[in-house]
Design a protein around this nucleic acid. Structure first.
Length: 1037
RNA sequence: GGGCGUUUAGCUCAGUUGGUUAGAGCGCCAUGCUCACACCGUGGAGGCCACUGGUUCGAGUCCAGUAACGCCCACCA
């Protein structure tokens, strides 16, 4: 035996192995790819945000990608996995700003744009390094030499070219739009960075007096609001243009709903109908009257500010709700904005960016919203302009970043016009050029694109790609013509690098007067300081805003390959093969990549999209940093190893289920595991219930807490994988120890024993299954298939059997088989557990430098470069597999009797087997293995045998087993065991007899099903008879 | 309000086109430190497959409905 193999530890020392293996891969540039003659397989990484460290969701996402990439690489594809990170605009800026505010008490305005951006770059450098390090620790086989960043020069150029192109095509334009204004961070946030929270609020019903009411006309119009301070910006009140039919329609809808509704819902709907009926009686006349007044152009007097505002007719006012009238605040409500557009209403912004009221708010100027609301209400009360106040729960949008309420604010925004772009992305999926798996996600993708809502791409941030547009607003036609003329002269020298748009707009000021004006926009394709200075000289100012992060992400598949340069990479790797992502960014990211790819490249960015599950905590909640229920992959790697983390991830990835993962703190002192709950997960420190010592968590902020040892957050769900890693490691140890003196010996078919043919059959079957599962992204099945094969077949049977053969001489055939089988198993496992398998491969190469079956198949130095196992269909032999199953049954029959008879494992048993001659011949060579595996010797085997005088019986299909229990037998136990067996058989026999007694079944079921049932019934009856005989004999003792 | 998903053993989950009395891991019980592995071996207990109907010779699997939970989208003054 070799000293090296013997001296290997019994636990896989993953941390040293990981470092060593990684170094070997790097030294070989094993992951680097250059275009060549082979088929390409490429994946671009979903670039992680440089906001912070990676979490388990990333570990899952990247593990799956690596499994695909490593497999394809072994299958002979020229594989490129493009790595990189995303600058993540608002998220990153918010994190850094908050930090600066906390640590230095400064705002971004104190620092200035340049300094803030410099600080964020520092942050980015730090976190990018950390993220890439995490990915490498995970074993990701990215081409690290090609690492990109969405804000680096290559990506920036792609962004500029794209924006310029869209600008030229008039597919990007500027317009006014309400943004979600975070008054705390003083920036707009995107819709997906807003969450709604139900809070208790009040619903104020305000009275706006009608100016000069005629007899019979109402003196007031009542409108309701949850934000009374916005009345300062009201520019109209709306009533429905046809309240009668609108109410009728509402009723029809309700009745339809009533028909479909369940009994439980009926009362509520009936109540609604009654209310509607009431309204029709009491309010409809008033609404009709108001409608007529609106048609007459009548006005109301807005309280406090004393402004005359029109009464207008607009369908936005729902007669079935509230008073039937609605106040219109175009500058502060998305719906009102639409109404304002339709009726050319002035937009009055009452808000400063910092959330205080501005000069438009008269005496409330300078107050915060909360205070202003109170004052406005007080004032309205004092003039009796409040009809009534209701308390009710209201849904209030909050900023995800600052947790403060969002205020809608009107601002200039750049938009991408989505009409044709969106359609192209829909078509790509409809015609199958892009496939999405699982298919159910196609619906969401299509539905979102089908809305074709223009994409607002400007963000009021400093961190990102600054919009390359210089603008100047001209107050009149003359000026416009003048400036345009000068620009034309200036830009004539750069026809492909500059483009002009003129945005004509009517400015509606607070007094409602309209003035014609226009803004000239110049877009530059490249940085060009002299030209920029010339633009500045013409008083054109660059837009301070930056582009939405998703704008650069949308270009990722081609920008990372060098677009707009026509690189060889672009021709070879694009379109990429597979995109692996999570479902929440199918619309935001996947859809946009498709349409941008089509626009820029004229080709789809990827052929398949695979959408994987999400990782949830033990309560089914999504993991997030802010909730504190996240798990750091590095903690898992440190405790269980990268391979265990990876195997665990793959194993958990089923098609429909999200991954629920109960998490626990691990006491850094005693290792005790403390379940994480909703309550304890946000505490800065915890006391270990076992050793009563405190430890810190991720929330630790005080000096004292931080000084404590940190408790890692882990999940027991990785233990299975860790155990598997160790099982494999030890199977490898066994192999290495027993391969001493190995010399490759070509094996002919006749050299193979039953168990050899069995394991080869299984190996080929399993390989075929793994291939099939891989093609369909059934990751969990891949893991399970290999796990079961490796543990239950290779370890539990094949290795056990080989123990016998390793003792005898010669063992060359057994060694060749062992080396070969282990070799193939390592290849199959490598994509999931690269470090372990690579490490074993190294050891195996040392002792068995040439491997193979019929011919020598010299292994590569590194497993990562080895070829994927090829399925040899002739080796798949169902007959051998079923014969081997007999052997397994005999073994467990023996073990069962030993256990039930309570016979110590050390005590040898003797047994006889009764079966037909064919079976006997098949079993005979396997009998010696039973010696070791069940500590039992066969005394007789065949169709006529001598039974032991005192014995226990096991009846298997076609086989009877008799265990000699002379002087050992526990009659009671044996009777119990046999009776139980008989009962069990009786149950089966009864159900089968019943089935076969059913004329319908016999008549209508397929003949083969019926035949199979008959056959199995006969066999069961046979078995039952044998058991019955045994019982009788026992009782007569 | 619209859409999607889930509900199977104490826990976390499998269960491919309907066809023996539904499986795994963990946990639990019993037992064994036999020279690859106690992160292991051997045996065992444990399920009205959420509920109600339907289709079928036959339903965990297909259809309809109900309930609970979760996610996404749109949101009412």
């Amino acid at each position: 035996m070799t000293a090296t193999a013997e001296s290997l530890p019994t636990r896989f020392e993953f941390s040293t192995a990981q470092a060593r293996v990684w170094q070997a891969w790097m030294a070989q540039r094993a992951f680097h790819s250059e275009p060549d003659q082979r088929r390409a397989y490429s994946i671009v990484i979903p670039p992680p945000n440089v906001t912070g460290a990676l979490h388990l969701g990333h570990a899952l996402n990247n593990t799956l990608q690596d499994v695909l990439v490593r497999t394809r690489r072994m299958q002979g594809f020229n594989t490129l996995w493009m790595p990189g990170t995303d600058h993540a605009g608002i998220a990153t800026q918010a994190v850094v700003e908050r930090r600066i505010r906390e640590e230095e008490g400064k705002s971004r305005h104190d620092l200035g744009r340049e300094e803030l951006v410099r600080r964020i770059w520092q942050w980015k450098d730090q976190y990018e390094a950390r993220i890439l390090g995490q990915l490498q620790q995970l074993g990701c086989s990215c081409d690290w030499e090609r690492t990109r960043f969405t804000l680096d020069d290559v990506c920036a150029r792609a962004v500029r070219f794209t924006f310029f192109d869209l600008f030229q095509k008039q597919l990007v334009y500027r317009g006014k739009r309400l943004v979600n204004w975070d008054t705390f961070l003083q920036t707009a946030v995107s819709d997906d960075e807003v969450f709604n929270e139900t809070v208790r609020g009040w619903f104020w019903h305000l009275k706006y007096p009608v100016i000069d009411p005629l007899p019979g006309e109402p003196e007031f119009v009542i409108v309701a609001t949850t934000r009374p301070e916005t009345m300062l910006g009201d520019t109209a009140v709306a009533v429905h243009p046809d309240p009668e039919s609108a109410m009728a329609q509402a009723e029809t809808d309700l009745r339809q709903k009533q028909q479909r509704a369940s009994a439980a819902e009926q009362p509520a709907i009936r109540r609604e109908l009654e209310q509607l009926e009431d309204r029709r009686a009491t309010m409809l006349p008033v609404l009709l009257r108001l409608r007529a007044m609106a048609a007459d152009g009548r006005k109301l007097r807005l309280p406090i500010v004393d402004r005359e505002i029109p009464l207008i007719a607009d369908a936005w006012a729902k007669p079935e709700l509230g008073s039937g009238c609605v106040k219109i605040t175009p500058a502060h409500d998305p719906n009102d904005y639409e109404v304002g557009q339709r009726h050319r209403l002035p937009q009055i912004n009452i808000l400063n960016p910092d959330g205080t009221l501005n000069g438009q708010a008269a005496q409330f100027s300078g107050l915060t919203i909360a205070v202003a609301r109170k004052r406005v209400v007080e004032h309205l009360e004092s003039i009796a302009a409040i009809d009534r106040v209701e308390e009710r729960e209201i849904e209030l949008p909050h900023s995800d970043r600052s947790k403060t309420p969002i205020e809608p604010l009107l601002a200039n925004q750049w938009f991408v016009q989505m009409d044709t772009l969106a359609q192209s992305a829909i078509d790509a999926v409809d015609d199958g050029s892009v496939t999405i798996a699982p298919a159910r996600y196609v619906h969401g993708y299509r539905a979102w694109l089908a809305e074709k809502r223009d994409w607002p791409v400007s963000r009021q941030l400093w961190w990102g790609h600054q919009i390359p547009v210089w603008s100047r607003t001209c107050a009149n036609e003359t000026l416009l013509a003048e400036v345009t003329g000068e620009l034309a002269r200036l830009l004539a020298a750069h026809p492909d690098r500059a483009a002009i748009q003129v945005e004509s707009h009517e400015t509606l000021d607070e007094v409602g007067s309209v003035s014609q004006a226009a803004t000239i926009h110049v877009c530059l394709r490249d940085d060009d300081p002299p030209l920029e200075r010339a633009l500045a000289a013409l008083e054109l100012v660059r837009d301070p805003d930056v582009l939405d992060t998703w704008f650069s992400s949308a270009l990722w598949p081609h920008s990372t390959l060098g677009w707009p340069e026509r690189t060889s990479e672009l021709g070879y790797y694009y379109p990429t093969s597979t995109l692996v992502t999570s479902r929440d960014i199918i619309t935001l990211w996947v859809a946009r990549m498709v349409l941008m790819g089509l626009n820029n490249m004229g080709a789809i960015p990827f052929r398949q999209v695979y959408v994987h599950p999400k990782i949830l905590d033990g309560y089914g909640e999504t993991m997030s940093k802010s909730k504190g229920n996240g798990v750091d992959p590095l903690d898992v790697i440190e405790k269980f190893g990268a391979d265990a983390l990876r195997f665990g991830m793959v194993h958990l990835t089923t098609e429909t289920q999200d991954v629920r993962m109960p998490v626990a703190f691990e006491c850094p002192r005693c290792g005790h595991s403390l379940e994480q709950t909703r309550k304890n997960r946000e505490l800065p420190r915890l006391d270990c219930p076992a050793c009563h010592q405190p430890f810190s968590t991720q929330w630790a902020s005080s000096e004292a807490d931080r000084a404590l040892p940190r408790g890692a957050v882990l999940s027991e769900r990785f233990e299975v994988a860790r155990n598997f890693v160790n099982k494999l490691w030890n199977a490898a140890r066994f192999s290495l120890i027993h391969l001493e003196g190995y010399l490759f010996t070509p094996l002919r078919a006749s050299d193979l024993l039953l168990e050899d043919r069995w394991i080869l059959s299984r190996l080929n079957t399993v390989t075929a299954q793994v291939n099939e599962h891989l093609d369909h992204f059934r990751f969990s099945e891949i893991a399970r298939t290999i796990y079961d094969f490796a543990w239950d077949e290779f370890c539990s049977f094949y290795v056990e059997i080989l123990k016998n053969r390793m003792e005898g001489e010669p063992r060359a055939a057994a060694q060749t088989m062992l080396a070969y089988t282990l070799d193939r198993l390592l290849r199959l496992l490598h994509p999931i557990m690269p470090f372990l398998t690579e490490e074993i491969w190294r050891h195996l190469n040392e002792i068995a430098g040439v491997r193979g079956l019929e011919m020598a198949d010299p292994p590569t130095d590194l497993l990562v470069q080895a070829a994927w196992p090829v399925v040899e269909p002739p080796r798949i032999d169902p007959l051998i597999e079923s014969q081997f199953a007999r052997f397994q049954k005999v073994l467990s029959g023996l073990r069962d009797i030993r256990a039930k008879q309570n016979i110590a494992p050390k005590k040898p048993l003797q047994f006889a087997v009764r079966c037909n001659t064919n079976l006997a011949e098949m079993l005979r060579p396997l009998i010696p293995y039973i010696q070791r595996m069940a500590n039992a010797t066969a005394t007789d085997l065949g169709d006529s045998i001598t039974l032991p005088a005192v014995h226990a019986t096991a009846v298997l299909p076609d086989i009877e087993l008799f265990v000699d229990l002379e002087g050992l037998i526990d009659v009671q136990a044996e009777v119990g065991r046999l009776t139980k067996e008989v009962n069990n058989l009786d149950g089966q026999i009864q159900s089968k007899s019943q089935k076969l007694g059913n004329a319908n079944f016999v008549a209508r079921a397929p003949a083969e099903v019926v035949a199979k049932e008959r056959e199995s019934l006969a066999q069961l009856q046979e078995q039952r008879q044998a058991l019955q005989d045994a019982l009788q004999k026992l009782n007569s003792h």
